[in-house]
Design a protein around this nucleic acid. Structure first.
Lengths: 164, 164
DNA sequence: GTATTGGTTCGGAAACCACCGAACCAATTA
DNA sequence: TAATTGGTTCGGTGGTTTCCGAACCAATAC
């Protein structure tokens, strides 16, 4: 990563790692995305990204296409220029939240299943831990609601400024 | 998985997969843990688990020890019996929540870092997305608070019944 | 036509991981 | 003493992931 401040470089690594695990991305994809989040420029060319990440053409190609496919980034072109320019999609925060929502819903569902299974098959155990199970279920429900209202807020903000 | 109902078997797979990804456990560990969550019996022997999971001694050994080390499960012994008996720790739900809390705190920290980085280095971009950034930060803060109060509730419940 | 540019695709190398079986060890039983 | 039981450790194997370089392709430039 030449030509980038030490600080930015470090933050790219840290943030990249985070994307990697939260969204299940390959390391390089995480770093590319992190770099873009932290960048001012509106469009990064394929070459830019090769240089910045010190990765091979093929790897960059693969990972850029992956990020596009997952709608983390998008590309645009300039007339009279064959290059593609990449930028983060405007709604990446909402995508993140929607992913979280899906994950929470899945877990909530599973917890309900487990609770009802234990209620039926292991009644003693269920009674003993009933309150805990309910607390946990309430927790998930509350997280879910918070997510939903946040997503609504973001959509409202988008409608206001049409720039989400 | 002999001697186990179809229903339980399916739920073990599903729940095991969930533990696998949420807690970063090897598949076998996830399944062992899931099986214990869904079980009435107070202690499962090493042999039981081999039979139930259809895995090798060595794999079961490794994964049981892993689960013990991570405090998902614990073991006890019976006098005049060399075997070890395994059961879920009473506070597994709290452990789960505390893991989530740690993860949220890490992410919140990162988001703050990113926001302040962009505020300083990419002021235009920051202004444009300021509200979104704040909404997201608020969301994380709220999730964190919800987690904290839930953990408190669980601790209160534990104190009341001393069975967490 | 040929050369260059921008990017994709393919085959393989290196690293990692989960799991297994065999050998092993330590405690008990005979 | 030898045999059994309960469990651990080690070496290796199959499978997966990530990345690379080389070959390739399509569009433009000369």
């Amino acid at each position: 990563m030449q030509n980038i401040s030490e600080e930015k470089c470090k933050l790219v690594e840290e943030l990249g790692l985070n994307f990697e695990e939260k969204h299940n991305l390959p390391p390089l994809a995480g770093r590319i995305y992190a770099f873009m989040i932290l960048s001012n420029v509106e469009g990064h060319s394929f070459e830019d990204i090769i240089e910045i990440t010190c990765a091979s053409k093929s790897s960059v190609s693969t990972n850029l296409n992956l990020l596009v496919q997952l709608k983390f980034i998008e590309y645009f072109t300039k007339t009279g220029d064959r290059k593609r320019y990449f930028r983060t999609t405007k709604n990446y925060l909402r995508i993140t939240l929607e992913e979280y929502l899906e994950s929470i819903e899945k877990e909530l569902n599973l917890v309900k299943k487990v609770n009802s299974f234990n209620k039926e098959h292991n009644p003693e155990k269920f009674k003993k831990n009933k309150n805990l199970g309910i607390i946990f279920q309430d927790y998930l429900t509350s997280q879910k609601e918070n997510l939903e209202t946040t997503i609504q807020k973001m959509i409202a903000f988008k409608n206001e400024f049409d720039q989400l």
